[in-house]
Design a protein around this nucleic acid. Structure first.
Lengths: 239, 239
DNA sequence: CCCATGCTTCGATCCAGGACGAAGCTTGGG
DNA sequence: CCCAAGCTTCGTCCTGGATCGAAGCATGGG
């Protein structure tokens, strides 16, 4: 009777806690082995295997054999987008997980969202960039100004290479922790890479968490200005 | 162990065919009674009632009593956004419903997506608008040019009122039938309203389908120019 | 060549939740 | 005031699928 794309199977694919955990873990953008995903989801290897098979059959995951490991990754950026959108909706409708781990405040602060930075720090960064006229936001769309291009070049980004990419340069991504936008797209990814290259931050292995070094954080604050919404107390709490 | 928004419950909420059908029906933006939704989903009244209760408890639906009817509607535009995003993903991963109804070609052609027009016609319209410089697309973001403003005003739209709204004026929305963008946002909604007001089109009651009158279609084609991807054969087939 | 590791397949169990019939509650109309 | 329509609640049945133990396949190391 109804026609069109089949939401229901896709939804039920996302509807199992174990699978949802796996997908959330893969949001970091890096490929994980079946075993890691099993541990992440808190199920045995057999169970994880069947879940992964279903997710792959459903087209949400791609799989790559390497030695005796099998690496799984999200099949595309759109999958990550849908998951983050669901997270945003879940946050709005009050569906937050009850079990609150110790890492939560740190996660709210700085984490990887597929390939770019998310969390308070990312939101503050975008705010600072717009406040200083480096990025303009028109109708929820972001674009880099000439001044912004100069700024990014000074930071060491290869803008011509970025502009040549197929993916959009600037893209807004809704943060589930704070309900505000942070910077995604090619520029967002390049910035995060740059932070890593500069040694300002490193990702916690096997996690979405991004940990800034004290000096890195200082440099970050200096460059991206004051961030009124993230006082120093939170910094201490997050470390 | 994991932390953050709870995707899984939300996913399982979308994961039932009956509920998915109801939500898809509500994508039209109009509120429907419990009975209509039950018929839409192909289940009995009791079953529908429990589904609706769960959807409401989950924060996806709002409910309004009116006489002895209960009207249900999506709780916000973000819900519609997530559903359309899921539809896009479902289309990409090949999850299309098997049961193909007679209305399908017409639906692919012109339908309501929450509050704006979607389908081939909408994609063609946006193409024409961009081709003529009325709307520019930068990095997948849309914005109206001065020439475009004049054009819209000539069509009878009250642009100052639209600009005053909180919602963004232009917004891209990915079409699941064609894998291309069509116009959403305040402007998209206003345009659809205008088509209705002009008598060019009317919505099929209880459906997402938008039916253009012959004269309306002619006027539409005249104003929005040639649409290379939708030859006349399809027009005949869709009527 | 054999063993350990990583993962999948098979088989069995068990339970959440989706389905409907029947009864109960509210609202509007005569 | 009673009846019909619209919807919900209750009780029951039943299926899909989530889980794990055990066995089966590959791969790499010694």
């Amino acid at each position: 009777m109804k026609v069109g794309p089949d939401i229901a199977t896709l939804g039920s694919l996302l509807g199992d806690p174990a699978r949802a955990n796996m997908l959330t873990a893969l949001l970091s953008g890096q490929a994980l082995t079946a075993g890691e995903l099993a541990r992440e989801a808190g199920v045995t290897a057999q169970t994880a295997s069947s879940h992964l098979a279903r997710l792959e059959a459903g087209g949400l995951l791609t799989q790559r054999k390497q030695g005796r490991h099998r690496y799984y990754a999200l099949s595309g950026e759109d999958v990550a987008g849908v998951i983050e959108a669901l997270m945003g909706l879940a946050a709005r409708t009050g569906h937050t997980r009850v079990r609150t781990g110790p890492k939560e405040p740190a996660l709210r602060r700085a984490r990887v969202c597929y390939d770019h930075l998310a969390g308070d720090l990312a939101v503050g960064m975008l705010e600072s960039l717009t406040a200083r006229g480096f990025i303009v936001e028109t109708d929820e769309r972001l674009s880099l100004t000439p001044a912004g291009e100069a700024f990014m070049a000074a930071l060491g980004l290869d803008l011509p290479a970025l502009a040549g990419q197929r993916r959009p340069l600037c893209k807004g991504c809704l943060d589930w922790s704070v309900r505000r936008t942070h910077l995604a797209g090619g520029l967002g990814a390049a910035l995060l890479d740059r932070f890593f290259a500069l040694g300002w931050a490193a990702r916690e292995p096997g996690t979405r968490l991004v940990r800034f070094s004290p000096r890195g954080l200082e440099a970050f604050r200096e460059i991206f200005g004051v961030m009124p919404d993230t006082p120093n107390e939170e910094t201490a709490a997050a470390t």
